[in-house]
Design a binder for these strands. Structure first.
Length: 461
RNA sequence: GGCCCUAUCGUCUAACGGUUAGGACGAGAGCUUUUCAAGCUCUAAACCCGGGUUCGACUCCCGGUAGGGUCACCA
């Protein structure tokens, strides 16, 4: 793995150093599918960089060759592209081995680090590792979000920075790469707070400028534990499978631990870039709420035009015209495209295939002479529906049917429902469905008539 | 357990010493509709506790409590 001639890796661009004031990075390790919490840090890093007119880079931290998988790496770029968070440059940490080695040797030569003889504690442990000579004392760094954070680095001891000259450990590789790539702002999860001190020690020993740190509050699951694979967090790309729109997910993620300072709740990517500000980032952790995400998604689905709605959801049908007419129904009912599909297969399936109404259900409820009432009610509609034009709006249908239902009501035989219920049920064959006027406008007079006549036949039989 | 971080409705949050503590999602009720959904209206729902500082604390300080993170030859 880790060959360089692989086109799954996006095109590289050289960052012109000094030109851009801000460079942020997203540095995931490709050892599994990343979840919403991971991508939330990417979102913040991206928004901050773009708001500042800077660069956003992605670095795959694949120094753990045993656990890193190309499949996961592809999934990361796939998700980033889907969320529309394009990188200005991408790197793979394993490609910087010689640079890491060079600096490791430099530290050893300066006796800031040393090769240490070890007694292996577990399988895989080396007999020799490279340790950093810890100067001890306390170290304070200023975090953009949390303010000053002080650590007593003595507690860290002479920590390991590499398993061998060619196998630097995370802390070392991160510091070197961030510096080499010109990263000015390290925006990452709060679980890295305790790593910062030792990284700062390495950074100083190497003579690097220290980047600005911003440790984001963690995203929690419903049990208030850090979002994690083992605790059932979904891979971000699973939300695409559920039929979530990327702009909705981006919107939701951006609002987890941040807000624009005004009353806006729904913001496009451009609006987010414009408004994003690290100083408004929350200190406390936030719980990921799928229900809220769904509601944000519904908002964005409703904003789509009929054509876009169909295209974005990859929706098609043998009856494209009916499907088009059903879009408003879908937009008011479904929160995700997954739900759209469920509805098309379920409660809205009556739009595409003739129902088999049950005799008992056709009868208006709780009425004396129910059968006669339902039958005559349906028969009374035949003429009016026959007279309808081929293309009718639900409003127009309502205009002709409602008066007839009102007449029935005037006769005191159970109100409009005596007409409306059998009608709706005859058309849909379902206890729950859109209203009969909408149904007729989608089905058209001809098919509606056929369904009503079928229902009348059932009542007679 | 050591170290570190955090603390406003169930959840996401507003408030930056003076408000009837606001909004959103969710929940409940009503209207509408003899279905469902949507829509509209309304309601319930929070400043973790204790000390200070101050004329005055959700806001500042200290302590406690609770929650979380982290303590690898993983990142």
């Amino acid at each position: 793995m880790n060959q360089t001639n692989d086109n799954s890796m996006p095109q590289r661009k050289i960052i012109s150093n000094g030109v851009s004031p801000v460079v942020t990075r997203f540095a995931p390790s490709p050892t599994g599918y990343l979840h919403a919490g991971n991508y939330r840090t990417a979102v913040f890093a991206y928004l901050f960089a773009k708001h500042s007119g800077g660069k956003f880079i992605v670095r795959i931290e694949d120094t753990d060759a045993a656990r890193s998988k190309r499949e996961y790496e592809e999934n990361i770029f796939d998700a980033l592209a889907w969320l529309n968070l394009p990188a200005d440059a991408t790197y793979r940490q394993s490609e910087h081995r010689s640079r890491h080695r060079e600096l490791l040797e430099k530290l050893i030569a300066a006796d800031t680090a040393y090769v240490s003889k070890e007694t292996p504690q577990k399988p895989g442990d080396r007999e020799e590792v490279i340790r950093f000579r810890n100067p001890g004392g306390s170290l304070t760094f200023s975090d953009v979000i949390h303010g000053d954070i002080t650590t007593d680095v003595t507690d860290l001891g002479d920590f390991i920075i590499a398993r061998s000259l060619d196998e630097p450990v995370f802390h070392f590789a991160v510091v070197v790469d961030d510096a080499d790539e010109g990263v000015t702002h390290v925006i990452r999860g709060g679980d890295h707070i305790s790593n910062t001190a030792r990284q700062l020690l390495i950074s100083r020993a190497l003579g690097f400028a220290t980047p600005t740190y911003a440790h984001l509050p963690l995203i929690m699951d419903s049990q208030h534990k850090k979002l994690g694979k083992r605790t059932g967090a979904k891979a971000l790309t699973d939300y695409r499978l559920l039929g979530i729109l990327p702009e909705a997910l981006l919107n939701y993620l951006a609002f987890l631990g941040w807000n624009p300072g005004d009353t806006r709740e729904y913001m496009s990517r451009d609006e987010l870039v414009e408004a994003f500000d690290l100083t408004r980032v929350q200190k406390g952790s936030a719980v990921f709420d799928e229900v809220k995400l769904f509601s944000v998604n519904q908002h964005w689905m409703r904003k789509l035009s009929t054509d876009d709605f169909l295209t974005r959801g990859n929706l098609s049908s043998d009856s494209p015209e009916k499907l088009r007419k059903a879009v408003p129904l879908l937009q008011e009912r479904a929160r995700t495209y997954g739900e759209v599909q469920e509805m098309l297969d379920g409660e809205l399936s009556c739009l595409f295939s003739a129902p088999e109404p049950a005799r008992d259900q056709l009868l208006a409820k709780e009425l004396p002479g129910r059968q006669a009432v339902a039958k005559s009610a349906l028969e009374g509609l035949l003429e009016a529906i026959k007279a309808l034009p081929g293309e009718v709006s639900a409003e127009e249908v309502k205009g002709v049917i409602m008066p007839l239902a009102d007449e029935e009501e005037a006769r005191g035989k159970g109100g409009r429902g005596a007409v409306l219920w059998p009608l709706r049920y005859a058309l849909s064959g379902q206890e729950r469905s859109p209203d009969p006027f909408t149904l007729i406008s989608i089905l058209g007079p001809e098919e509606s008539l056929a369904r009503i006549q079928k229902a009348i036949a059932i009542l007679e039989g």
